[in-house]
């Protein structure tokens, strides 16, 4: 696919906001940032004591998605670093939590975005960090 990025004066060249694919990526990341955080907010505010670990994890996942969205959108050295860190955390998170939720289901009585490799979300959480990292890799300096 051709890269038709048209850098503006104010935005770094690798800001995802500049290109069509990037905007699609941001839309998906934004949806996940919203759904993970909203879910955590409801869970923590209504029945935190039932599964504190899972709910704190939901909140953490929401923050990571938010950071990844902002990092990818901004681009530049700092945005890149932010996106790289958060996408890596995301990848490690979905893999570790995915394995743990299958092996040790008792520790995860309630679902998070990352449980069972994100099967509750159509495995999108498993694919998303790869796309994010691919984006960063493709736009490396």
């Amino acid at each position: 696919m051709p890269d038709q990025s048209t850098p503006t004066a104010s935005r770094p060249r690798d800001a995802a906001l500049n290109t069509g694919v990037g905007r699609v990526l941001l839309l998906v990341y934004g949806v996940f940032a919203l759904s993970a955080s909203a879910r955590a907010l409801v869970q923590i505010s209504t029945h935190f004591s039932e599964a504190p670990l899972a709910y704190l994890l939901s909140a953490f996942a929401g923050l990571v998605y938010l950071a990844a969205t902002v990092g990818l959108a901004r681009g530049g050295p700092r945005g890149r670093m932010l996106a790289l860190i958060s996408c890596t955390v995301e990848l490690v998170g979905v893999l570790v939590v995915g394995v743990l939720s299958v092996v040790d289901a008792v520790a995860f009585p309630d679902d998070t975005v990352w449980s069972r490799f994100g099967s509750g979300y159509g495995y999108v959480p498993l694919v998303l960090p790869f796309i994010g990292l691919w984006w960063i890799w493709r736009h490396r300096a």
Partner: peptide, 28 residues
């Protein structure tokens, strides 16, 4: 609230993106 806002949001974003990616936004 999310449901009612979703289609209009996708529509606005797709209007801002008059390329194939606009259609991908609508599709997603």
């Amino acid at each position: 609230i999310t449901t009612v806002g979703f289609a209009p949001t996708a529509l606005v974003l797709a209007k801002m993106e008059p390329t194939r990616w606009g259609n991908l936004i609508l599709g997603i």
